[in-house]
Amino acid sequence: MNYIIYFSLTVMILALILSAIRFYKGPSAGDRTLALDTMTTIGVSGIVLLSYMYNRYIYLDVALVYGVLGFIGVIVIARYLEKAL
């Protein structure tokens, strides 16, 4: 079972790196925000996985809050890009 978790974590790290590259390359603001969004999603699953690895139920709270606030951040940036702010 441990190997499966290691495998998932490794793949997540690779995914994080790929989105980081997209963030670096741009070219538009939307791409960067999309990268942030994807990173938040990966981060939520990563935190859930970490909380399973440490076997602490309470860490799930962090994942929940993380997801909510990342979503709001993306909405704010999108509204700014719409020039509505």
Binding site: A15, S19, D31, L34, A35
Partner: peptide, 8 residues
């Protein structure tokens, strides 16, 4: 997840 990142 990886495929999504590969997609973007």
């Amino acid at each position: 997840l990886f495929l999504g990142s590969l997609g973007i």
